[in-house]
Design a protein around this nucleic acid. Structure first.
Length: 299
DNA sequence: TTCCAGGCAGTAG
DNA sequence: CTACTGCATGGA
């Protein structure tokens, strides 16, 4: 590898559709943390003090990552590869999941219909938790608007081709905010308190992605997360599937999930917790993916 | 106008 | 344990 090289290719896994993944990223909401144009994704890479902008695109049998802004090096290309691999969940073999789907009386259409859709992650735990709090109990359009205000006010950015590309703010940047400052951005008092509190425990090192990962199993991770004020069962399950890639998470209470399950079961009402548990029973070890695929039926 | 959205914490029984 | 309520705002 030469010093000037600024691209690297990742072989595509067996069951993978870049188009399905892009469909998720670009399903009509205004996300401020990446941008999509001509089937290419632009994303600032989270290496502190060394800003870089990645472009991810599909080329033949590979995903190509190009560092289009900032210095490239073998080390940074390695980090970019790790990041994209987590983001697109490239190291997972979906065949066992598709086998279960194929046997399901109502979901056997999914392996074909949504073939290659991956669990698109949020590799950073702090960002994932904040995003959950922002999204709690409000519609997704408004949630994206709130996130953009937060990011544009308190995050750093790089400018590339006269467009700004933002990093999510660091915990320390949000920990010092006041409720009043966030209320000016139209955050509710409750959301403001939750966000500032979460930023505080991250800034203090009280909790971290590494510490959480050391708990090694889903249940203690859920318990630990739910000790944080503002983090309930929905949020804890959401971040475990999106950030730590736990495969056995069900976002109970999620209105979208309830609506999808209700529709599949033909209930005409909200499913009970037990009905959701029963529905997921044959998907042991793939619950998170089933949630993602059920959400896919809604968009 | 009314209802509710990818919830949570607090309270009452 | 379950059931209920207040929170806050904008979309549909």
């Amino acid at each position: 590898m030469t010093e000037s090289q600024n691209t690297i290719q990742i072989p595509k896994p067996k069951i993978f559709s870049f188009a399905e993944c892009l469909h998720f990223l670009d399903r009509g909401y205004d996300d401020c943390l990446y941008s999509i144009e001509n089937n290419k994704v632009l994303k600032p890479l989270g290496i502190k003090n060394h800003p870089a902008l990645l472009e991810v695109r599909e080329e033949n049998d590979a995903l190509t990552i190009e560092i289009v802004y900032g210095k490239s090096s073998p080390e940074r290309l390695r980090k970019a590869t790790t990041y994209v691999t987590q983001w697109f969940d490239l190291n997972r073999d979906l065949a066992p999941f598709y086998q279960i789907l194929a046997q399901h009386p109502r979901l056997s259409y999914m392996p074909e219909q949504y073939r290659g859709l991956r669990l698109m992650g949020i590799p950073d735990l702090f960002e994932a938790l904040c995003w959950c709090v922002i999204g709690q109990q409000i519609n997704l359009t408004f949630a994206h608007r709130l996130k953009r205000r937060l990011v544009e006010n308190y995050g750093t950015s790089i400018t590339y081709r006269s467009k700004q590309h933002y990093y999510f703010p660091e915990p320390a940047q949000l920990a010092g905010l006041t409720v009043g400052e966030l209320k000016e951005l139209q955050f509710s008092r409750q959301k403001s308190e939750y966000l500032i509190g979460i930023a505080g425990v991250f800034a203090d090192g009280n909790i971290s992605q590494q510490k959480l990962a050391k708990l090694s199993e889903t249940r203690p991770m859920l318990k630990r997360l739910m000790e944080i004020r503002g983090v309930g069962e929905w949020t804890a399950n959401y971040v475990l599937m999106k950030t730590l890639k736990r495969m056995d998470c069900i976002t109970y209470g999620d209105t979208g999930l309830q609506s999808a399950v209700s529709s599949v079961l033909g209930l005409n009402r909200k499913p009970t917790r037990k009905e959701i548990e029963d529905f997921f029973e044959s998907f042991a070890g793939w619950e998170s993916y089933l949630v993602i695929y059920l959400w896919r039926t809604l968009s």
